[in-house]
Structures are given as structure tokens and as C-alpha cells.
Design a protein around this nucleic acid. Structure first.
Lengths: 128, 128
DNA sequence: ATAATTGTATTGTGCACTTAATACAGTCAT
DNA sequence: ATGACTGTATTAAGTGCACAATACAATTAT
């Protein structure tokens, strides 16, 4: 469980995405109880206030609900989770194609790029 | 020329990426003179200080250089631009695959997603 | 020469994010 | 009942981002 943060974006939003991912990919199961705010904050090495803000934000998506004094739980609606996972995958794909277009590459370039990327699993390569 | 900004990230960084894109995709040609800081700021509807910060940041990448009192210019090194475009495309692809993995999908799912995304060019679909 | 245009620098203000340190009310185990 | 947990709220401090309003030196156009 690695909690690393991009310095260029609010931590609490990255926490939201991080946790959302764990729900969508099944690391957190439907109905499962989440660790407490304080525990999650300690694990992620952030302030409890920041984690609280992230969790509050997460509830607006309906993936998580709170039982006032006993804790937070993942939604039991497995269908909803599956639906959101598919939508997330489609959105990622659309953004990928849009980014390629911004670089001046046609969507048809995607296939070759995917093949190339899977061959060389090396360098992470930041800009320069 | 649309300059729209994501509220969740620093504007000056988005400006950097925006301009970098225009260089990599050929909208800005090698050797071409850039509009002045003030003009660019007006076009993007941001404060000149913010645009100045973005441009200063851009020079660290070597895609742009300054002639003290006459203006800023795109590098004439077309090979460098081409090299960076290829690298950018590969990085985008790697991130796409990594994001799919985070969703619990195998890289082999990419092909089907690309096909699906190109069929339905509709909804932008944000979370919920 | 004068005026306009270049990049650059400075000072101040407002706002959001993050951390820290507490505090409170309700639930649960003992 | 007591103590340890839950989520939640508040106040204070520090930081970075963005804007506003100027200002200056050097080049370019007139």
C-alpha cells in the first residue's frame, strides 16, 4: 500500500482518487468497514483533517457511507461499483485519445503506441 | 484557441502544458516568435505575472528561449521537438496502461476500450 | 529623439490547502 | 459506569497560487 502524492495537486483530492481506486479494483470490498479517519491518516502520513476532507468528499459519490459513531463503510451496491469501474475505464480511454490528438497524433497511432509501451517496461521518463 | 483550466491544478502549470502542446503538435513552429507575455496573458485571460511564471518554467525544458528585450522564441531544434513528442506519446501510453491496472483491468483490455471509445464519441461523463 | 514594446521585478492582498492541537457527542467493550 | 473508540468541529499558523498595480532597463518603430 503506497501512498505517494503529486506535489502539484491538493493531497485531499489524491486521497479521494486513491481510495476510489481501491474500491473499484476490489481492494476494498462492498460492505467492508473502512479503517478510522485517524488510522487512515496515519497510514497515508497526512493530517487527520485532510483525510476527513477526502472521506467527506468521497461520500458525495455514494461509494461510501457513514454510520455516525461506528465508522465508515463501502457501499453494498456491487452493481454500482461495477458500473463506475466501466465508466472510469472509458473516461481514461477517451482522455488518452484526446491527449494523443493534442500531440498531433491520430487515434490510429494508439495501437502501435500500446505495443511499444508494453515491450519496453523500462524508463519512467519525466519531461527534461 | 481555447484556454480552459482545471480548477484543481495551478494555472501556471496548465499554461506550461498548453504551450508545450502547441509546440509539439506544430501549432508553434521552430524558430517562431511567441506573442509577448502581456498578449499571451490577455489571450489566456490570466494575469501577466502568471503567464510570466509559466514561460519562465517553459524555458527550463529548453523548448523556448528569451532574447532579453525583443521577445521569446521557439527553439530551432526541430529534432529535439520531434524527440520530445515521441517521448510524450510513450509516457501518455504508459500512464494509460498504469491507470487501467489501478482499476483492476489487464493491459489486454486496452484494445477493446479503444474501439469502444472511438465508436461512442458522445458523453464526457464526470464521476457522479 | 520620442514613444511603444520587450522581459523582468516588487509589493500587497486574498484565498485555498495543510498541519497542529484540541474539543465534543455518541457508541461499544469491559 | 468507565474508558476507548467513532465521526466531527474549531482555532491558529504557515505556505503557495493568483491577481492587481506599478516600475525599470533595453530594444524597436516612428
Amino acid at each position: 500500500m503506497v501512498w505517494s502524492f503529486d506535489a502539484d495537486r491538493p493531497i485531499y483530492l489524491q486521497l479521494v482518487e486513491h481510495i476510489q481506486q481501491k474500491i473499484l479494483n476490489g481492494e476494498f470490498q462492498p460492505g467492508e468497514k473502512l479503517p478510522s479517519v485517524r488510522d487512515l491518516a496515519a497510514t497515508a502520513a497526512v493530517n487527520p483533517n485532510t483525510m476527513q476532507k477526502a472521506l467527506a468528499e468521497l461520500e458525495r459519490g455514494g461509494l461510501v457511507f457513514t454510520q455516525r459513531t461506528s465508522g465508515r463503510f463501502i457501499t453494498q451496491d456491487a452493481a454500482k461499483i461495477a458500473r463506475l469501474r466501466e465508466r472510469a475505464a472509458l473516461n481514461l480511454t477517451r482522455r488518452f485519445l484526446a491527449d494523443l490528438t493534442s500531440l498531433g497524433l491520430p487515434p490510429s497511432a494508439a495501437a502501435a503506441l500500446l505495443a511499444a509501451a508494453q515491450k519496453s517496461e523500462n524508463r519512467s521518463d519525466v519531461s527534461d
